[in-house]
């Protein structure tokens, strides 16, 4: 199986107060649908990230629920209003009890 996990978050390290910054992320996951078959003709079970939660300084910022229609090794970008310095943390959970987290920090002046 291809690599799993390896979550990555990218965000500007500095911003002005009130500035809207883009957060970009990536994680390795097969995102299989449960509908396709392997070479032996057996169904490949569904294996996919179902939720991504995002906190900033431990307070909820946003979250997303996904279906199997999201591409393998999902990329996700969104935005955040930079109001204070701190740490953004993203957590991905898949339907096989897989949990991964990654952080990025920002200094707001």
């Amino acid at each position: 199986m291809a690599a799993m996990g390896n979550p990555m978050v990218r965000m500007a390290s500095h911003a002005k107060k009130g500035q809207i910054v883009e957060v970009r992320s990536l994680i390795m996951n097969p995102m299989t649908t449960g509908l396709s078959k392997n070479k032996a003709g057996k169904l490949i079970p569904a294996h996919f990230i179902q939720t991504v939660t995002v906190t900033f300084n431990n307070k909820p910022l946003c979250n997303v629920d996904w279906s199997t229609a999201i591409s393998a090794n999902p990329y996700l970008a969104f935005k955040m209003r930079a109001e204070e310095s701190g740490t953004l943390e993203m957590t991905w959970k898949d339907n096989t009890n897989g949990v991964w987290s990654s952080k990025a920090s920002i200094t707001v002046a």
Partner: peptide, 25 residues
């Protein structure tokens, strides 16, 4: 798609902008 709902994104005001980018099948 076999299951038409692909994603449900839930924002807070602190996002500053209701924006996301993802890749779908």
């Amino acid at each position: 798609n076999p299951t038409p709902l692909a994603s449900a994104f839930h924002f807070s005001a602190n996002n500053g902008q209701a924006y996301f980018q993802a890749r779908i099948k």
